[in-house]
Design a protein around this nucleic acid. Sequence first.
DNA 1: ACCTATTTGTCCGTATGTATG
DNA 2: CCATACATACGGACAAATAGG
Lengths: 116, 116
Amino acid sequence: MFVLIDPTTVTPVFAQIAESIATQIATGTVATGERLPAAKDLAGSLGVNVHTVLRAYQELRNDGQVELRRGRGAVVLGTPTAEALRVAVARAATEAKAAGIPIGTLLALIRKEYES
Amino acid sequence: MFVLIDPTTVTPVFAQIAESIATQIATGTVATGERLPAAKDLAGSLGVNVHTVLRAYQELRNDGQVELRRGRGAVVLGTPTAEALRVAVARAATEAKAAGIPIGTLLALIRKEYES
DNA sequence: ACCTATTTGTCCGTATGTATG
DNA sequence: CCATACATACGGACAAATAGG
């Protein structure tokens, strides 16, 4: 796992790590089902704290790109985009219902956003 | 700001705080534009660490319910559901396009999810 | 069935930085 | 210039789930 941290930028270290890994997932540098290095190990090789790496991993989990389990580690999800889409769709539907937005209006919003 | 922490449950403290405040926002107990107590103060009154409260605040920000600014504090957003919906819609559309999902399929997914 | 090591999850404490007022 | 308040990072401790012997 190659991650380069730029100390001169304003982007937080945990965000840099998350973005770097996300790029590697998107480009196929790290394959589906592959296990990311243990947070402790990656932290050691990067010279940062374990918590910083764990926060990066949790960012990736929130984006639906990896699955985190205690004792198992961080595993790249099989269909990251499909999973992310599922989460996004569920969220949009939930928010719309909570806001009292009818299905027709929601679909119009989606269509407009999609075509922009 | 009244927040009750239950030490017997498995739900993390930061999640309990976030849920409690989210409920108070939803029920109007805390009004739009109102400022949440400083993390340090709330932490003090709850007997927890500042970071625990800050993490709860950041959860609320990720859900589009509050706005966090350095030096200013945490302010309850004016139209939380509308903003959250806008973000959710944009995300769903973006993910679908990235995944190569056509608009018709996306709309069908949305409709199915909405009606479930 | 048991024990141990691994690995993430949460929380605490401290320090420093940065935007706001 | 100064106080306030969130943001990030480090370090330590313990818990909980998993895997392997």
